[in-house]
């Protein structure tokens, strides 16, 4: 594995540009966080933006932040495709994971509401097919 440790020499040439990109990432992360907090305050004080839209924006901005941390700070964006794919493809399971579980939670809430004691039961109409038995 000797070839993985030969980079010291040629990386010093990029010293300035890579320190610059570290700070650029820092400012991006800080600004996104400030925008998030700012939006939350605007919503609290003036009811700016409906809740659903605000939540969508928050989740979107969170994913942008996650991208910058993983790609720049953890350096994954600069690794070869094999490594990127071996990490990212398994994480696609989260797509199913999130949709399935949140759908389940929502359905659970509706069932508890509809089946609460005292809720009038809808009597099923007896159709013509039923009469044959």
């Amino acid at each position: 594995m000797e070839h993985t440790h030969t980079a010291a020499g040629h990386e010093s040439a990029h010293s300035d540009s890579s320190t610059k990109s570290i700070w650029r990432t820092f400012w991006i992360l800080l600004c996104i966080t400030l925008v998030e907090v700012g939006l939350a305050f605007l919503h609290l004080e003036y009811g700016f933006l409906p809740r659903v839209m605000l939540n969508a924006i928050f989740i979107g901005l969170t994913l942008v932040k996650a991208f910058y941390i993983v790609a720049e700070f953890m350096h994954l964006g600069h690794e070869i495709k094999n490594l990127i794919m071996t990490i990212l493809i398994p994480l696609l399971l989260f797509v199913w994971f999130i949709i399935a579980f949140l759908y389940e939670g929502d359905s659970w809430k509706n069932m508890r509401k509809d089946l609460k004691p005292g809720t009038p039961v809808e009597t099923p109409k007896i159709g013509p097919a039923e009469k044959h038995h």
Binding site: F97, I98, F101, L102, E104, G105, D106, W108, K109, R112, K113
Partner: peptide, 12 residues
């Protein structure tokens, strides 16, 4: 976090 989301979705 998804467990948290599920319970939050299932709460009125």
């Amino acid at each position: 976090l998804i467990a948290y989301g599920t319970i939050r979705f299932s709460s009125p």
